[in-house]
Simulated scan of single mutants.
Amino acid sequence: MPTQVLRVKDLMTPEPVTVTPLDSVETVLNRLEERHISGLPVVNDEGKLVGIISEADLLFKERPIRLPLYLLLLGGIIYLEPLDRFIQELKKSLGVLVQDVMTPNPFTITPDAPISQAADLMLEKRINRLPVVDEQGKLVGIITRDDLLRALQSELVES
């Protein structure tokens, strides 16, 4: 008898706790603490996913700003690394709103994808959570490494 392939929709948390781009960082901290979670999807007014914010994003506020390496040559500055990365880090360090600190355009997955695809994506991209979106980009759930590990544990117990 063939084994049933588990899908993301079988393990995801539907209707996850979210924040909006205009929420404060303080709101994020409160929701993370209240729910004992480490990240939140960021949605716009239509419920479409626009970003994700995690504890790692919030730690930028506590990290010292590192100036990009540069050379002075003939009275001009030549940057040895991308200046836009420095600008993004500066925004995160100074940010007080979610939109300043969040990671935009996060990796996502669909509800019908097999959980093996979710696991591969999390491992390959070194992320802990995947927002689950429908065809229109609307957030319908979230799946985390913990969800995958619980499924694996229950599968091992059953066998």
Score class of each variant (00 low, 15 high):
Gln4Ala: 14
Gln4Met: 15
Val5Gln: 15
Val5Cys: 08
Val8Cys: 14
Lys9Asn: 02
Asp10Trp: 01
Asp10Ala: 04
Leu11Gly: 06
Leu11Arg: 01
Leu11His: 01
Leu11Phe: 07
Met12Ser: 08
Met12Tyr: 08
Pro16Trp: 02
Pro16Gly: 06
Val17Leu: 07
Val17Gly: 06
Val17Asp: 03
Thr18Glu: 05
Thr20Leu: 02
Thr20Met: 04
Leu22Met: 13
Asp23Tyr: 00
Ser24Arg: 11
Ser24Pro: 09
Ser24Ile: 07
Val25Glu: 11
Glu26Cys: 07
Thr27Cys: 08
Val28Glu: 00
Leu29Pro: 02
Asn30Gln: 14
Arg31Trp: 11
Arg31Ala: 08
Leu32Arg: 12
Glu33Thr: 09
Glu34His: 15
Glu34Val: 15
His36Tyr: 09
Ser38Phe: 00
Gly39Gln: 09
Leu40Tyr: 03
Pro41Ala: 08
Pro41Cys: 09
Val42His: 06
Val42Ile: 10
Gly47Met: 02
Gly47Ile: 06
Gly47Gln: 04
Gly47Glu: 02
Gly47Asn: 04
Ile52Val: 13
Ala56Gly: 15
Asp57Leu: 03
Leu58Gly: 10
Leu58Met: 09
Leu58Ile: 14
Phe60Pro: 01
Phe60Tyr: 15
Lys61His: 15
Glu62Leu: 04
Arg63Val: 15
Pro64Gln: 13
Ile65Met: 11
Arg66Pro: 04
Arg66Val: 13
Leu69His: 15
Tyr70Val: 07
Tyr70Glu: 09
Tyr70Asp: 10
Leu71Asn: 12
Leu71Pro: 08
Leu73Pro: 02
Leu74Trp: 10
Leu74Thr: 07
Gly76Ser: 01
Ile77Ser: 03
Ile78His: 11
Ile78Cys: 08
Tyr79Asn: 06
Tyr79Thr: 05
Tyr79Ser: 05
Leu80His: 01
Pro82Met: 03
Pro82Lys: 06
Leu83Val: 14
Asp84Tyr: 12
Arg85Gly: 03
Ile87Val: 14
Leu90Gly: 02
Leu90Asp: 01
Ser93Leu: 00
Ser93Gln: 06
Ser93Lys: 07
Gly95Lys: 06
Leu97Trp: 12
Val98Arg: 03
Gln99Thr: 05
Gln99Val: 06
Met102Ile: 09
Asn105Gly: 05
Asn105Glu: 04
Pro106Gly: 00
Pro106Ile: 00
Phe107Val: 13
Phe107Asn: 12
Ile109Lys: 09
Asp112Ile: 05
Ala113Cys: 13
Pro114Arg: 02
Ile115Asp: 08
Ile115His: 09
Ser116Ala: 13
Ser116Val: 15
Ala119Arg: 12
Asp120Trp: 01
Leu121Tyr: 10
Met122Pro: 07
Met122Thr: 10
Leu123Met: 14
Glu124Asp: 15
Glu124Ala: 14
Glu124Pro: 11
Lys125Ser: 12
Ile127Ser: 08
Asn128Lys: 14
Pro131Arg: 02
Pro131Ala: 07
Val132Ile: 15
Val132Lys: 11
Val133Lys: 00
Asp134Val: 01
Glu135Trp: 02
Leu139Lys: 11
Gly141Val: 00
Gly141Asn: 00
Ile142Lys: 04
Ile143Gly: 12
Thr144Asn: 03
Arg145Ala: 05
Asp147Lys: 01
Leu149Lys: 02
Leu152Lys: 09
Leu152Ser: 13
Gln153Ser: 09
Gln153Gly: 08
Gln153His: 10
Ser154Gly: 03
Glu155Phe: 01
Leu156Glu: 03
Val157His: 06
Glu158His: 14
Ser159Phe: 08
